[in-house]
Every structure is written in C-alpha cells, then in structure tokens.
C-alpha cells in the first residue's frame, strides 16, 4: 500500500510537470514548481518508509527549507530583476 502511495505521488508530480511546462504565465510555473517541491518532500518520506530507512526524513526536511527559499528568491528576482534589494516594506508601518 505504501508503494501505491509512492506511485500516486509520482503520478501527481508528472501531472504537475505538465502545468509547469505549459503554464501560460510565469506565476503558473512558479506555483507548479512549488507544489512539486511539496510532493517531493512527501515522496522522500514515503520512499524512506518503503525502504525501511526513515533517515530519509532529514533530506526531506532540508528539501522543504530549500523549496521555500527558492520560491521566494525566484519571485523576488522576477519582480526586481536583482537579488540586491532589501525586502523591507517601504510604506506605512512602524519600522
């Protein structure tokens, strides 16, 4: 049954890859890649249990961290065309 779960996750990733390749806008692609990252984290965990090596969870934890940073970095780059912009809010607020 765990094998079936892994297989279903692979199917979901392949389907999401279709959206990542065909997405009409940049944001569809970013969304698809982010979602593929979530599924890969799950797939890594499930594979770890499938092979009786739950140490895979360390890798999936790391993948989750990198996935988030990568999404924000890609969005920031396509908004400002540079990584050298402080992300601090400019208008209003108390800072």
């Amino acid at each position: 049954m765990i094998g079936a779960a892994a297989l279903a996750l692979v199917v979901a990733i392949v389907l999401m890859l279709v959206r990542a390749l065909s997405g009409p806008t940049l944001y569809d692609r970013v969304l698809a890649v982010n979602s593929i990252g979530t599924k890969i984290v799950l797939l890594l965990g499930v594979l770890g249990f499938l092979m009786d090596r739950p140490d895979f969870l360390d890798i999936s934890l790391l993948y989750a961290l990198i996935n988030f940073v990568a999404t924000v970095a890609v969005l920031k780059f396509f908004r400002y065309r540079s990584f050298q912009v402080p992300l601090r809010r400019r208008t209003g607020g108390r800072r």
Binding site: I2, A6, V18
Partner: peptide, 19 residues
C-alpha cells in the same frame, strides 16, 4: 499506510484541479 495512500490520492486530486 492507508492514510499515506489517502494523502497521495488527495495530491493527485489537487493536481487535477491545477490542470
């Protein structure tokens, strides 16, 4: 294992929605 499978199927459902 059953819950894992249910989660994976929900992932497929979400992907179908995205498509």
């Amino acid at each position: 294992a059953f819950l894992c499978l249910a989660g994976a199927i929900l992932a497929v459902v979400g992907t179908v929605g995205v498509l």
